[in-house]
């Protein structure tokens, strides 16, 4: 019997994301659709959000506009599809600090925020290195750093060192250092005894990153965008696969457009997709 409900909630999308950012070595392949999502987990009274999206009314919105992101929808509208308000969110887990994952934190004023200590330290190191390292700063919104600082003064920031078990019962954090970013992490959800989901963050963008182009001859294709190394991305993908007993469908990539081919889903009135990954025994379906 499942204890957790898990939904992937699309909040905006880019119809023109460079393919080369998603698949290493995919030169000259133009652009692709890329949904932007966060993941909602409910267990008992706990309401956990994995990543917070970006803020369209802020600097992050200006960047999003400039790179073709459309359809941004306020978290109050997105979460309402699952009967939750932003104020109900008790925990936000940041897989990493890029603007499209950390920029929406201000909408969740009651949440305790969890991120890897190394993620913060690495951004500080990059900034200390000056303009020659500017390309490594890409995607970090200074306003998000200020928000994290504010949350820290309010006692709402928890810095994690590596593996962290039971943020709430059955929800665990695993480090993915030197992959997409230096201090990335991913989330393991034990939905029932012996049944696990992996929420991959940007270590895996799509299923193609996990299995390649031929299910009979699988190979990892790491994402193109990495401050860390392609080798570490592949090693971490292998680690994820071992957690889900090699069933790639139990790894949940937040930028995967075809999740609805594997799990029940619906389109909202605004044209954004909600995918129901797991449903707790006491919960009602939202799709």
């Amino acid at each position: 019997m499942k204890k957790h409900s898990v939904w992937v909630l699309e909040y905006s999308r880019s119809p023109v994301h460079p393919v080369s950012g998603v698949f290493y070595g995919a030169h000259n392949q133009g652009t692709m659709n890329l949904p932007f999502s966060y993941v909602l987990i409910k267990i008992g009274d706990a309401v956990v959000l994995v990543d917070a999206g970006h803020d369209a009314g802020d600097f992050g919105g200006r960047i999003a506009d400039s790179i073709g992101v459309t359809g941004w929808t306020h978290p109050s509208v997105v979460l309402a599809e699952c009967g939750v308000s932003p104020e109900d969110v008790t925990h936000v887990i940041l897989t990493h600090a890029h603007f499209d994952h950390a920029g929406g934190l201000k909408y969740f004023p009651n949440a305790q925020i969890y991120m890897q200590r190394k993620e913060l330290e690495s951004w500080m190191w990059i900034l200390s290195k000056g303009p020659r390292f500017r390309s490594l700063q890409a995607g970090l919104n200074p306003a998000d750093v200020l928000y994290l600082t504010q949350a820290n003064t309010e006692g709402r920031l928890t810095l994690v060192d590596g593996v962290y078990s039971d943020v709430v019962p059955g929800v665990h954090l695993r480090p993915a250092f030197d992959t997409h970013t230096a201090g990335s992490q991913y989330v393991v959800v034990e939905t029932a005894p012996g049944s696990r989901l992996v929420l991959s963050g940007d270590v895996i963008y799509t299923y193609r990153n996990l299995v390649g182009d031929d299910l009979d001859h699988r190979q990892f294709i790491p994402p193109g965008l990495a401050n860390g190394s392609q080798t570490r991305l592949i090693e971490t993908a292998e680690e994820m696969m071992s957690i889900v007993d090699d069933d790639y469908r139990h790894v949940i990539p937040m930028h995967e457009e075809k999740l609805h081919e594997y799990y029940p889903s619906k389109l909202t009135a605004g044209g954004l997709r909600i995918v129901e990954i797991a449903l707790a025994a006491e919960d009602e379906s939202r799709v």
Binding site: N28, G30, A138, N141, L225
Partner: peptide
């Protein structure tokens, strides 16, 4: 009409292939 941070190396639009 400008942002205070850069995202060109992670998500810049390339509408034409090289």
């Amino acid at each position: 009409g400008a942002a205070i941070f850069d995202a060109s190396s992670c998500c810049a639009i390339h509408t034409n292939v090289e």
